[in-house]
Amino acid sequence: MSKENKGLSLADLDLVSASENAYEFEYLRPDGSDTGVFVTVLGAQAPKVQDWVRKTLNRRKSQDQLAAKRGKEVERTIEDDEQFGIDAAAIRVVGWRGITEPYSHENALILMERNSELREQVFEASNNLGNFTKA
């Protein structure tokens, strides 16, 4: 008798819920060496992350529409875009260990603002769906 592959359930394919399972990774120095700093992130598809992205982009769109009604154009600076990236990374961070200051969203914002290498690693870990799904 052969085993029949019954396939996957909808729950098995639910990447939104899986993205809520926090993933911890070690922050590595640019040369690849260990730091002893471990950061815990949500997946990019987690509702908390998606809600923040939607809210932020909708607010920008509303500002643009309001300015257009007034015959003006909203000028977005490079600094605005940089801050969006900092905020988008910080919203994904939900904890850490190996850093003397306690985790808080405010401290995550400071850390993401001050360390672009770590910010890139946060995005990489958060965007890698394999970090949030079962093998």
Rank of each mutant, 00 (worst) to 15 (best):
Y27T: 02
T40H: 02
E79F: 15
K134A: 13
D34T: 11
V39D: 00
S19A: 08
E120T: 12
I110H: 12
G130R: 15
K72Y: 07
R76H: 14
V94Q: 03
L111Q: 09
A108F: 00
R59I: 12
A68M: 10
A88L: 08
S116D: 11
R70K: 14
G71Q: 09
R59D: 15
D12H: 05
F132M: 01
V49I: 07
D31L: 04
D14R: 04
A89Q: 04
R59Q: 15
N5A: 07
L8V: 09
A125M: 02
D51I: 12
W96Y: 01
S17V: 14
Q65D: 14
E124C: 12
D81G: 13
G36K: 00
F25S: 01
F38Y: 13
D12C: 02
N115M: 11
T77P: 06
E117T: 10
E82F: 15
T133Y: 01
A108E: 00
Y23S: 01
V74T: 06
E117K: 11
F123G: 05
I99T: 07
R76T: 10
Q65C: 06
A46Y: 08
A135V: 12
F38E: 04
L42K: 03
Q65T: 15
Q121N: 04
P102V: 10
F25M: 01
A46S: 07
E20L: 08
E24D: 08
G32E: 06
H105Q: 08
A68P: 15
K3D: 10
E20K: 09
R70M: 08
K55G: 13
D31A: 06
R60A: 11
L118I: 03
A11V: 12
E113Y: 12
D14W: 02
G85A: 15
E4C: 05
Q121I: 02
A44L: 10
E101D: 11
E24A: 09
D64L: 15
D87V: 07
E26P: 02
D34P: 10
Q83S: 15
D64P: 04
S116G: 14
Q50I: 10
A88C: 07
A22H: 10
K48I: 08
L109C: 03
D81T: 13
W52I: 04
P102C: 05
W52D: 09
Q63P: 03
N128T: 11
